[in-house]
Amino acid sequence: SEEELEEFAKEVLRRGITIIVNGIRITEVEIFVKVLREILEKR
């Protein structure tokens, strides 16, 4: 749901943790923004 997305976004921003994806360091915020864009483009 959109509320869950908002909560996830807030949690990500609070933690600001960097994770490893395919050997490249990407912040969770960047991943969230990318996923959010993909979701919005599909609408």
Rank of each mutant, 00 (worst) to 15 (best):
E2A: 14
E2D: 13
E2H: 12
E2G: 11
E2P: 13
E3L: 13
E3P: 08
E3A: 14
E3Y: 14
E4N: 10
E4C: 15
E4S: 12
L5K: 04
L5S: 01
L5Y: 05
L5F: 08
L5H: 01
L5I: 08
L5D: 04
E6N: 09
E6T: 12
E6Y: 15
E7V: 03
E7C: 14
E7W: 13
E7T: 06
E7Q: 11
E7D: 09
E7P: 00
F8P: 03
F8G: 01
F8C: 15
A9S: 03
A9P: 04
A9E: 03
A9V: 12
K10E: 07
K10L: 07
K10N: 05
K10M: 05
E11M: 00
E11H: 00
E11Q: 06
E11N: 05
V12D: 00
V12P: 00
V12L: 14
V12E: 04
V12Y: 00
V12Q: 07
V12S: 03
L13Q: 01
L13I: 13
L13F: 08
L13W: 01
L13K: 01
L13P: 00
L13T: 01
L13G: 02
L13H: 02
L13Y: 00
R14D: 08
R14I: 11
R14E: 10
R15P: 07
R15T: 12
R15Q: 11
G16N: 08
G16M: 15
G16C: 15
G16H: 12
I17P: 00
I17A: 10
T18L: 12
T18A: 13
I19D: 00
I19N: 00
I20C: 12
I20V: 09
I20M: 07
I20T: 08
I20D: 03
I20K: 06
V21T: 05
V21K: 03
V21Q: 05
N22E: 07
N22L: 04
N22A: 08
N22F: 01
N22D: 10
G23S: 06
I24K: 08
I24V: 12
I24W: 04
I24R: 07
I24F: 03
R25Y: 13
R25P: 14
I26Q: 03
I26S: 06
I26A: 04
I26T: 04
T27Q: 06
E28P: 04
E28C: 06
E28V: 08
E28M: 09
E28W: 08
E28Y: 09
V29C: 14
V29T: 04
E30S: 07
E30Q: 05
E30W: 05
E30R: 04
E30Y: 03
E30F: 05
I31A: 14
I31E: 15
I31H: 13
F32V: 07
F32Y: 06
F32T: 02
F32W: 03
F32P: 00
V33F: 01
V33C: 11
V33R: 01
V33H: 02
V33I: 14
V33Q: 02
K34M: 04
K34V: 06
K34E: 11
K34S: 08
V35F: 07
L36V: 05
L36C: 11
L36S: 01
L36Y: 00
R37K: 14
R37S: 05
R37F: 07
R37C: 12
E38S: 02
E38C: 15
E38G: 03
E38P: 01
I39P: 00
I39T: 02
I39M: 13
I39K: 02
L40S: 03
L40E: 03
L40V: 05
L40K: 02
E41D: 10
E41V: 06
K42L: 09
K42M: 10
K42W: 06
R43A: 14
